[in-house]
């Protein structure tokens, strides 16, 4: 069985600035992986490369054994077209720091849009699934609300339900609690913990060290585009080896 995510010397530069300098990482199926590190360390970029929101420049990136954004045929790499990339992405859920719920759609419509337009489900089927997921994130009473009428925590829970509605094999979380008021962080983390318990493979960019310690199977510490340290969070977060991680932990803990 291949790993869910496999990165081999992945590089990415923005206009000459190297953000990822050869990152190696493996996410096993059913595992929760947390990416930690100072801002600008490349952890969000790495996450966005996994579902091809950003194109990596060099290295090999595989999700579920398949190359991301390319196809390997007759000794050449062929770039995938829009439709093929969309098909790849529809199997990877993503939750953003700023929620990014569709502002013109109600909560229910937010969750049914992808199911109907991408998965080709009927509206009734999609609604049924959406209501089931809303109940799971504790928001079944809010299906008619617009995102602007919800608190940040509620919006993020809807965003998680929207991603889950596509029945992804992998969930990506890009600092899901960083834009939230402190008292709302817990409700989102609870939903994520529940999700981890169901065996969902998750990659989480986070500053919540407690979450990483409690939930993650593996934690990766990125700094300046390279992975400095990785391993069991109970070891990495309590007995940091490198000076950089020691300094980082002293600031966030």
């Amino acid at each position: 069985m291949t790993a869910m995510v496999e990165a081999r010397s992945v590089c990415k530069a923005y206009g000459g600035v190297e953000v990822l300098k050869g990152v190696n990482l493996t996410v096993e199926r059913g595992e929760v992986t947390c990416l930690i590190g100072p801002s600008g360390s490349g952890k969000s970029t790495l996450l966005r490369c996994v579902n091809h929101l950003e194109k990596h420049d060099a290295g090999e990136l595989r999700v579920d054994g398949e190359l991301v954004g390319y196809e390997y045929r007759d000794g050449k790499l062929y770039e995938l077209n829009d439709r093929q990339i969309c098909a790849e992405r529809s199997q990877i859920g993503m939750v953003f720091q700023r929620f990014n719920l569709f502002a013109h759609l109600t909560v229910l419509e937010n969750i049914t849009l992808g199911q109907v337009k991408v998965k080709g489900r009927s509206t009734d089927e999609a609604r049924l699934k959406a209501r089931e997921l809303l109940a799971r994130v504790g928001l079944d009473a809010k299906e008619r609300s617009y995102p602007s009428q919800l608190s940040g925590g509620q919006q993020q829970r809807v965003a998680i339900a929207r991603a889950l509605a596509m029945e992804p094999k992998l969930m990506l979380f890009d600092e899901p609690t960083s834009a939230l008021d402190p008292e709302l962080v817990g409700e989102v983390l609870d939903v994520m913990k529940d999700l981890a318990r169901t065996g969902m493979t998750m990659m989480v960019v986070t500053h919540e060290m407690n979450f990483a310690r409690e939930v993650a199977d593996t934690v990766y510490f990125l700094d300046a585009g390279v992975i400095e340290e990785s391993g069991d969070p109970k070891v990495v977060l309590t007995q940091p080896q490198s000076e950089r991680l020691k300094m980082f932990l002293s600031k966030v803990l």
Binding site: N51, L53, D82, R83, C86, A87, R89, S90, Q91, I92, G93, M94, F96, R98, N100, L101, F102, A103, H104, L113, G114, K117, V118, A159, R162, A163, M166
Partner: peptide, 20 residues
């Protein structure tokens, strides 16, 4: 972010334009 969210659930570029 709206466009990214639409891409992330697998909408094509045209669907993103028309629906979001």
């Amino acid at each position: 972010g709206q466009i990214e969210a639409a891409s992330a659930i697998g909408l094509t570029r045209r669907q993103t334009l028309g629906l979001v």
